[in-house]
Design a binder for these strands. Sequence first.
DNA 1: ATGGCCTTGGTACAAGGA
Length: 253
Amino acid sequence: MKLATWNVNSLAVRLPHLLEWLAATQPDAVCLQETKLTDDKFPHAEIEAAGYRAEWFGQKTYNGVALLSKTVAADVVKNIPGFDDEQARVITGTVNGIRLIGAYVVNGQALGTDKFAYKMRWLDALRAFVASELAVHSRLALLGDFNIAPEDRDVHDPAAWVGQVLVSPEERAHFVQLQALGLHDAFRLFEQPPKTYSWWDYRMLGFQKNKGLRIDHIMVSDALKPQVTACVIDRAMRKKEKPSDHAPVIAEI
DNA sequence: ATGGCCTTGGTACAAGGA
């Protein structure tokens, strides 16, 4: 099974990229983030014509997530039950017997801000939700835009990033706590080329200079871990005309 | 050497992203 996550940074703009990528890559399931569409605007007809079922959960202007799959997703849940959130950031469903939690983690803007406090609170709620799902679904993957670079090797210039969001000890501690639930960073299960990232700033020729961060992840449960045979970041879509600033992450299970 | 973007809403430019 081919499983993927991709922050498309506006599905209105990136629908052609998505359709091209689906046709070329043929994932069995993919979680999308930053669709930036209200539910009535979601392009389900085009996606269905490409051979995918879709579940979606969006809002105006910001955020928005979707779960596309070749077979229908069961037991779909939108956002984190019991956590009051105005923002559309999580979509969960079961595809081919695997519980998939697609998440768009809060950015946090800057350390010490209200938005950062929301990020910390939000990650607490996500962890509790993942724990409760794991208790009933041993075969589980948590995947999406985590807005956390777990280690310095996931950062092009760690010194330049000290004191910024995405790399802070507080955020990394949340990633470690997710690992403590029995989740594994699928990318690090394999030998990887150094300086492999999933996001590059649109500014400062970030992609051309490979000034990136690895902040998009696929985490797999203990039960799934032995069945993962590969995990790669697909840089090709970042080279296209009008790309998303993120590249897809793909795991083979 | 430094800085260099993109999207949305809405129609100028601010806010947010990372």
